[in-house]
């Protein structure tokens, strides 16, 4: 009944409402078109250019998949591809593995000094990118503080930072703030009533963690 009266009340203003909506629609479409054009120029066109270049040789003749075959036949090059995949997988595992407990502690516990820990997690975002590298070299490089055991005071430890280990550490440092941010949001957005519902149905902490908390965060995974 209430909907009927609402519709009736709306009638007199229908005309102006419609024109406002029209304008909004147009602005929306225009913005979508602009974004699409921008993406074409900066993403699709360069990639397309790259793809085209990959199937022609230096003199401009079409060679099909020859370049790709050479690439995979050359151990050094295919190894590079494997390395990239390895580094990114391990980085994701570490960043999420570290970020989740951190985000959980920030959002779901009564831990003191939350502001401080949040700021610490966000620091890599504000530090210059070079800083990660310099710090790692100073600590773990050939003459690093830890490699040399604090100028010989302690037994030294070489983690071979010049290689995948170093890259992974740097990448984890770099992606950790994003992981914490995205997971914190997912954890805060979860409806508290879902936990109460789970509890009332007899679910313990472990089960509600796996049935409520993790699925809520799962929606945040693709963002990684």
């Amino acid at each position: 009944m209430s909907t009927i009266t609402a519709e009736k009340q709306l009638k007199p203003g229908t005309f102006t409402v419609a024109t406002n909506l029209d304008r909004e629609q147009w602005i929306k479409r225009l913005l979508i078109v602009l974004v699409c054009v921008w993406l074409m120029v900066v993403v699709v066109l360069p990639l397309f250019q790259l793809l085209v270049k990959s199937v022609i040789d230096d003199s401009g003749r079409f060679v099909g998949l020859a370049h790709f075959i050479t690439y995979f036949k050359t151990p050094a090059l295919s190894q590079a591809l494997f390395n990239s995949l390895f580094v990114s997988t391990v980085t994701t595992l570490f960043a999420v593995g570290l970020g989740f407990p951190w985000a959980y502690a920030l959002t779901r516990t009564r831990m003191p000094a939350k502001g401080f820990f949040k700021a610490v997690a966000m620091m890599p975002l504000f530090a210059p990118t070079l800083l990660n590298g310099i710090a790692l070299v100073y600590l773990f490089g050939r003459k690093g503080l830890i490699t040399r055991g604090f100028f010989g005071a302690l037994p030294g430890m070489d983690i071979h930072v010049y290689g995948s280990v170093g890259i992974i550490i740097a990448e984890v440092l770099f992606t950790f703030p994003q992981a914490v941010l995205i997971l914190s949001i997912a954890l805060t957005m979860t409806d508290a009533r879902l936990y109460e519902a789970a509890e009332s149905l007899g679910a313990g902490r472990v089960r509600s963690f796996f049935t409520v908390t993790l699925p809520a965060c799962a929606t945040a995974w693709p963002a990684r």
């Binding site: 409806d191 009533r193 879902l194 109460e196 519902a197 049935t211 699925p215």
Partner: peptide, 11 residues
């Protein structure tokens, strides 16, 4: 308990 917005598990 039936909650106000049902609180069904969305997944």
């Amino acid at each position: 308990i039936v909650f106000q917005s049902y609180a069904l598990f969305p997944n």
